[in-house]
Design a protein around this nucleic acid. Structure first.
Lengths: 129, 129
DNA sequence: CTAGGACTACGAATAACTTCGTATATAATC
DNA sequence: GATTATATACGAAGTTATTCGTAGTCCTAG
């Protein structure tokens, strides 16, 4: 029996590992560790332990064939990110997508290109209704 | 000297309290507790302690005049929410507002009204550039 | 074959978050 | 004025998250 629906929500540390794996694809502990160390000091066994825990929780799957195990996220990046956004939406915005987006866009981090891209997305979504 | 820039990021439990206060305005512990209990079982002293801690951290300000102290968020709701969104943007979306919004909108929780409102916001933002 | 390096497993210390009980003070009620 | 209700303060237990050291395994170069 495969564990599922267990929530699967990554903690902060886990999320930083996921980010690396989303960008790299399936990876060994060493690869993730090397990448993480570019921005942050972090022991090898710390990353190892985290990835082991994530595999236990079902956040990562792991291939044990090679000596250095290869891990990969069990969920698609899309789904994981949608869950993260949905979670914040509930916890801080009373479930309102509109309000969340409002705050995302007014947080000066949105460029003109971003706005244009979002407008395009809106068009697509509207046309599907 | 006033403490500032201490990060100020609320934990989960703290966020649920903030949500109540955003909706109620300045409140006593009892008022927050009663509100929270509508959706979730929670001891009175638990809420008290949390709000005390939040005041220590600077998340809440408190008026001690009355016997029942009155608390209120130290930051505007706007700023707090922008910080929360910005935090998730960095931690999960590599700082991309566009990507975050994409996932917010495709998480089926956005209604046609939401989309229209967002489109309007886009217009406003664009015209300001 | 044996020393060194790279890997996993795992225990355990530390820190952060959450929860609540008990003590104590103040106000209201009879 | 004694009892009851309602406050705050605070210690501390329970839980989850984070970090790392140490031990043991396996591979590879000399």
């Amino acid at each position: 029996m495969i564990k599922q629906g267990k929530e699967l929500k990554p903690t902060n540390a886990e999320l930083s590992i996921l980010q690396v794996m989303w960008q790299r694809g399936p990876s060994t502990v060493r690869e993730v560790h090397d990448e993480l160390c570019k921005s942050r000091e972090m022991g090898y066994t710390t990353v190892l332990k985290l990835m082991q825990i994530m595999a236990e929780k079902g956040i990562l799957d792991r291939e044990e064939e090679a000596r250095a195990h290869v891990y990969k996220p069990s969920q698609s990046q899309e789904l994981a990110k949608r869950n993260l956004v949905g979670d914040l939406m509930d916890k801080a915005f009373g479930g309102s997508a509109q309000e969340l987006v409002m705050h995302a866009l007014t947080s000066k981090k949105a460029s003109s290109e971003d706005l244009a891209a979002i407008r395009k997305l809106l068009d697509e979504l509207e046309s599907k209704k």
